[in-house]
Amino acid sequence: MDSKPEKPNAKEIAAKFRNDIADGVYGPGARLPGAQGYAKKLGVALMTVQHAYRQLAEDGLVIGRQGSGTYVIDPAKGEPTAQQAAASIRDLQTELTHVTSQLQELSDRVARLEEDRASAASPGDK
Rank of each mutant, 00 (worst) to 15 (best):
M1D: 08
D2L: 12
D2S: 11
K4P: 03
P5T: 04
E6P: 14
E6C: 11
E6H: 08
K7H: 00
K7E: 00
N9S: 05
N9H: 03
A14R: 02
A14W: 07
A14G: 01
R18S: 01
A22N: 02
G24F: 10
V25C: 14
V25D: 10
Y26A: 01
Y26H: 02
G27A: 10
G27I: 09
A30R: 02
R31A: 05
L32T: 01
P33V: 01
G34I: 05
G34T: 07
Q36R: 10
Q36W: 06
G37F: 06
Y38S: 04
K41I: 02
K41M: 06
K41Y: 04
L42N: 02
V44H: 05
L46V: 07
M47K: 15
M47L: 12
M47P: 14
V49Q: 13
Q50R: 13
H51R: 12
H51S: 08
A52Y: 13
A52H: 04
Q55V: 15
A57P: 15
E58C: 03
D59Q: 06
G60W: 02
Q66V: 03
T70Y: 14
Y71I: 00
V72A: 02
K77Y: 14
G78M: 04
G78W: 07
E79D: 14
E79K: 06
T81I: 13
A82D: 01
Q84R: 11
Q84M: 07
Q84A: 14
A85E: 05
A85D: 05
A85Q: 02
A86C: 00
A87W: 11
S88G: 05
S88N: 10
I89V: 01
I89C: 00
I89S: 00
R90K: 08
D91N: 07
L92W: 08
Q93T: 02
Q93A: 11
T94R: 04
E95R: 01
L96Q: 07
T97Q: 09
T97N: 12
T97H: 03
H98Y: 13
H98I: 04
V99W: 00
S101N: 06
L103I: 04
L103H: 04
Q104D: 15
Q104A: 11
E105K: 06
S107H: 03
D108E: 04
D108V: 09
D108H: 13
D108K: 06
R109F: 05
R109V: 14
R112K: 10
R112I: 13
R117N: 09
A118F: 13
S119N: 15
S119I: 05
S119H: 03
S119Q: 05
A121W: 08
P123F: 12
G124A: 09
D125Q: 09
D125S: 04
K126F: 15
